[in-house]
């Protein structure tokens, strides 16, 4: 009952061009049937994400560990709430990040859980920068 060959083949890596995404904007792409949020973060969002005391977070993780160094402005996360799998809305909630409409979980501008029933941060999918404006997810 595990995924069949065609499903696995369809889950191969994809490339995403980041050049059209302006600062403060984000796009949603689908990979393996999951929505992936790619946010072009503003200076303010990055500072907020780095200014918080990591030890005080429910799922402690530094912002540096969640983005690629040299590309701090890009946040790539799987947009599936770690509570029960709803899709959070970007640019909502009290932390300049994501807000899940189902059970009220709130994530910050690094996709880390800050408030609500979700147990963990939004997962970061495996990705690499192919060039400065292009990433490969998977």
């Amino acid at each position: 009952m595990n995924p069949d060959a065609s499903t696995i083949a369809a889950g191969a890596p994809i490339e995403v061009d980041l050049s059209p995404v302006a600062e403060g904007q984000d796009i949603k792409v689908f990979w393996r049937g999951k929505p992936i949020y790619i946010s072009h973060r503003t200076k303010k969002q990055i500072d907020e994400a780095r200014g918080v005391n990591v030890a005080s977070l429910p799922d402690p993780e530094t912002d540096e560990a969640r983005v690629k160094s040299g590309h701090e402005q890009w946040l790539v996360v799987i947009g599936i709430c770690t509570h029960l799998g709803c899709i959070p809305i970007a640019h909502e909630g009290n932390y300049d990040g994501f807000f899940c409409p189902c059970h009220g979980s709130q994530y910050d501008s690094s996709g880390r859980i800050r408030q609500g029933p979700a147990p963990a941060n939004l997962p970061v999918p495996p990705y690499t920068f192919v060039s400065d404006t292009k990433i490969q997810i998977g």
Binding site: M1, P3, D4, T7, G33
Partner: peptide, 16 residues
Amino acid sequence: TLLWGGYSVGNPTLNR
């Protein structure tokens, strides 16, 4: 993953 038959709820899920 066994329940879904894929990486998310989708056609394999509906079939099973």
